[in-house]
Structure formats: structure tokens, C-alpha cells
Write a protein that binds this DNA or RNA. Structure first.
Lengths: 183, 183
DNA sequence: ACGGGCATGTAAGGGGTTACATGATTCT
DNA sequence: AGAATCATGTAACCCCTTACATGCCCGT
């Protein structure tokens, strides 16, 4: 899967693995992410498969830059994958939900409430992130690269993030109330 | 992490790995899941660590039943873990969001809309599942095992599932409209 | 007759994380 | 003075999935 994410980013224009990582951290971070130690080897394989072409830019004091550009074959692989229908729902693993589910094993209701309040803080921060930083990132990207068409999709996924966080926060507030009253 | 999930289920009462798997499929399935091929080896290690005690019930035509019971040490390990605060937000990987984010690479808007409609079908089914099957499962479990206290937590996580699906569906509907209009 | 439930496991491989390695420049 | 940014990678390890292996009983 990472394969296609990388092709997807290369489709915006030629860039290095390091560049892709930075962009990922600012955009797909919350529904897709990867480390450099996974990105570099994956990119390396692309050349063999004819999905990309590489230009090496020598540098001093740093490793040489490897600028990857997507090929026709690469673009074809990407669009094929995008067109495939997704038949499985994503199987999230959420330790917080899991802990709450199993919290019958805890006698101390204050402990559970502390956990939930802590989560509220984290999710409120992330909601703010989607409402501020992400909006700014998208705007900046539109200005720099003239990508009105793409921006529709970026905004849609950003909006999902915002709505998701809002729902999570409401639910946490509801959970706090329920536990305070019923436990 | 699976370690604690298994301890959590064993805390409801002694049972086999097969039993745990069945219960998991009916309850935590959507925020935590595992295969039998992972559950069995993990349970096996517990005995060595003194977290469980095993009773072997001979059977014919089937492998002998191994009924695991949690020990004091096991319960302590479980409650310690439950009390630990979660500092990371769960990093979901959602291929649908990812594809939509990268859909600028597709010229054919109908393809994108088809994908979204397909997702709507899947999520509506799952919403119904949370509203029907899960409710029934919880009720059945309360009747069978006298677990009013635990049921508060089960209902809270079920409720999360319902709200999450509702939000996802609303967002998909919004995405469909946006693409129909703006693309 | 065939599929599903019961009940246990092993082995191979894929995907991902963590740790290690290098080294100049720029910001705080 | 120390951290962050730039820029690449390798190696060990862990978690998880997929495939394989066995075999009876029950329902349709």
C-alpha cells in the first residue's frame, strides 16, 4: 500500500524521499503515515519496476539527493489502484476504546475519568490542528503549486479529520457524564 | 497489547482461546481484533509468566480444550495496564481517505463517485450492525452473566461505534455532493 | 454431500518500528 | 551549547496475516 502512497505523492511532481515524508507529515499523517526507514527502501525498488526515474544531485556534507520522477507506467499503476474498489472497512485499533471496554476490571472510577479527561485534551488539540494548521497548509500548497482541482480532495479529507475529532470529543464528554452518574 | 486484551477477556471468567476469539468478534472487533494463529501462541506464554492457570479438558475427535484462568498476578498486570495513560492518538490507516486524498490523479469523476457510493453501502451496513446486533449481544451477555457494571463500558464503546459510523456516513454524503458540484 | 462449527496449533512471509550510522549547517 | 534541519540508508526485531495441518459432529 505504501507503494501507491509514494506514487501518489510523486504524481504531484518529482521529489526526494525526504520531501515526501515532510509532505506526508503535513497532510495524510492522520490516516496514513510511514517512517523514512520504510520509505527509502520502497522507493529504491521502484526504479527496477520502471515506475520511476531517478536523478542524483551530488551534495556536500550530506548524502546525494535522489530525486524521483514518476513514469507513465508509474502513473498507470497509481490510477489502477485508485480505481480499485475498497471492500474492507478499515480495522482501527484504538487502545483507549479497548481500555474503556475492559474497564470493568478497575474499581477506581477516578482512574477511568482521568484517562478520559486526558484524551479530551489530546483530541481537542488535534481538532484545533485540523481547523488551523491543516487549513493553512492546504492554502499554502494551492498558492505555491496551482492545484485547484487537487485541493478539493485535500479539503475533503481535512474536513473528515475535523468531523471525526468533533465526534470523538462529544463521545468522550458523553462517556465522562455517564460514568460520573452511573458508576 | 494483545497480551492485555486476552487478560481482559479472561478476567470475565475462565475460557479457551477459541471462546475469546468468538467474544472478540462480537464485541471489540471494530477497535481490536486478532486471529487464532496469534491468540494461541500468546496464551501459551502466559502460563510461564504466572499470569494464568491452565486446565486441560480431554476431548474426542477434537484437540483437548485448554481452559485458561487469570491469576492474581494476571489481574494485577491487567489493572496496571488499564491505569496507564494513553499519550498517543491512534494512528488509523484508512485506504479510502487515502485514495480520495490522491484522487486528483483520476480524470474520471464517475470512478470516484462509485467508490464513495460503495463505501456508503458498507458503512450503512455497519451502522445497522451497531444498532442491532451489538445491542442484542450486550443484552444477551447481561442476562447470561449478571454484569451490570461491565455493561456500562460495553454500551459506551458500542455507542462510539454508532456515532463514528454516523459521522462517516454524513461525511461521505457531503463528499459525494461536493464532487458532483465542484468537479 | 458439503459447509460450518468446534478446537488446537505451526511456519513462512510481509509490514512496520526502533535503533544505529554519518555529518555539515542553521536556529534557539 | 545543544537541538533541529537536511539527506541517506542498514539491521534487528516485533506484530500480524496467510497458508497449512487435523478431524469429528451437526445441520441443510
Amino acid at each position: 500500500m505504501l507503494k501507491y502512497v509514494l506514487l501518489g505523492f510523486l504524481n504531484y511532481g518529482p521529489q526526494t524521499g525526504y520531501d515526501i515524508k515532510k509532505r506526508m507529515d503535513k497532510s495524510t499523517q492522520f490516516f496514513w503515515h510511514a517512517r523514512l526507514s520504510q520509505i527509502y527502501p520502497t522507493l529504491k525498488k521502484f526504479a527496477e519496476q520502471g515506475l520511476t526515474e531517478v536523478r542524483v544531485v551530488p551534495q556536500e556534507g550530506k548524502p546525494d539527493k535522489k530525486i524521483y520522477a514518476i513514469t507513465k507506467a508509474g502513473r498507470a499503476a497509481l490510477t489502477d489502484w485508485l480505481a480499485e474498489s475498497e471492500n474492507e472497512l478499515p480495522l482501527t485499533k484504538d487502545p483507549v476504546l479497548l481500555k474503556l471496554f475492559l474497564s470493568g476490571a478497575l474499581d477506581d472510577k477516578e482512574m477511568i475519568l482521568r484517562q478520559l479527561h486526558h484524551q479530551l485534551t489530546l483530541h481537542r488539540k488535534r481538532l484545533a490542528y485540523f481547523q488551523e494548521e491543516t487549513v493553512a497548509n492546504i492554502e499554502q500548497c494551492i498558492n505555491q503549486t496551482d492545484s485547484a482541482r487537487e485541493s478539493i480532495f485535500w479539503e475533503l479529507t481535512r474536513h473528515y479529520g475535523e468531523e471525526h475529532e468533533r465526534t470523538y470529543i462529544h463521545w468522550l464528554e458523553h462517556a465522562v457524564k455517564t460514568i460520573e452518574q452511573k458508576l
